[in-house]
Design a protein around this nucleic acid. Structure first.
Lengths: 180, 180
DNA sequence: TTCCAACCTGACTGGTTAGTCAGTTAGTTA
DNA sequence: TAACTAACTGACTAACCAGTCAGGTTGGAA
């Protein structure tokens, strides 16, 4: 799949010919289907978005404090399909230039995820599950930063204990944020 | 400076001609000085390593629990020279392919930083400044993940409150890890 | 004054890559 | 059977880019 190649080598490091060869078709066929390389990238991002949304919000749009457990589960599942890990990070890193067409999409996606996370935390606060002296938006940014940073670290050296570290992190967060 | 261009556009997204133009010299002059593009990247990484080492360990090799405050200060300083922010992340993301020559260097650098962080935390435990039921290596990985993830987020949308979020994060970490 | 080394340039090259194009093939409908 | 279409191919091209090369300039030492 194209996803694996791009996650490994980045968009700029993967040629249409590479992807076509992997898919067992000609390079022209890839262009025929996606129009441009950018079209292909967007299609890949669509798939990734759908996949990740399914994982994060699988317990409904408002999982409350269970969100930390969900995240720990996601990280634990990295070992099973390592191809997707780092895709977003790699694409973000490659598209920070102002002139890039992918940037607005990535920025919007980031903001949306922050908003949804913050809303979940705020909802947990309202229900009395979580301390109210914590800024939910800051906490949402922190959670996302930890997750994407861990992806990056996992890309550099995939032998780090990502699952264990995240399990400990989730437990600590849950205990620390619980309404006492 | 070449650093800014590469941090913004990545190594693959920046040509020698771009850098030469920015520096006001010919493209051949850049090659003359650094030999290859790879040589240039390594020179940039040298500068970045020296710069960041100077910041993180400026209070000595064993700052103990003050490491969180130091990190908060570093993030607060991002606004002053935003060019360096994200450089490491961008280069890591671009060099996850096995065949890349920069990968070993980046991996070694990551491992070294984790080791030094973990050592600092272990030392704090020994001095009784920090809870001893926390795995120092996992905590070091968590800290680095948060930092690099925040860099990435800052690259996508530089309007996030990185400094405030990190100040809150540092305070929470310090309070939570303090020996009670 | 002569020589040399460091620094730099413009012109060039060989390799790479996204995208084009003129067809071919297979399946489907009239 | 004939006409049409979606999917695909091999061959091509224009643009781009890292690195080469043959020389030019400058400043300092002998």
């Amino acid at each position: 799949m194209a996803t694996r190649l791009i996650a490994r080598n980045g968009s700029r490091g993967t040629t249409l010919a590479d992807i076509a060869h992997e898919a067992g078709v000609s390079q022209a066929a890839v262009v025929y289907h996606f129009g441009t390389k950018d079209g292909l990238l967007n299609a890949i991002l669509d798939a990734r978005d759908a996949f990740e949304d399914g994982l994060i919000w699988r317990l409904g749009p408002d999982p409350g404090m269970r969100i930390f457990g969900i995240i720990a589960d996601i990280v634990a599942s990295w070992a099973d399909n390592p191809d997707l890990v780092g895709l977003l990070g790699v694409l973000i890193a490659e598209n920070v230039g102002d002139d890039d067409t992918l940037r607005p999409r990535l920025a919007a996606n980031y903001r949306l995820t922050v908003d949804r996370l913050a809303a979940t935390l705020a909802s947990a606060q309202k229900r009395g599950e979580m301390r109210t002296d914590v800024d939910t938006r800051a906490k949402a940014i922190e959670i996302l930063a930890y997750l994407s940073g861990l992806e990056l670290a996992w890309l550099v050296s995939s032998d780090i204990p990502a699952a264990e570290t995240t399990a400990a992190w989730a437990a600590e967060q849950t205990a620390n944020l619980a309404q006492s």
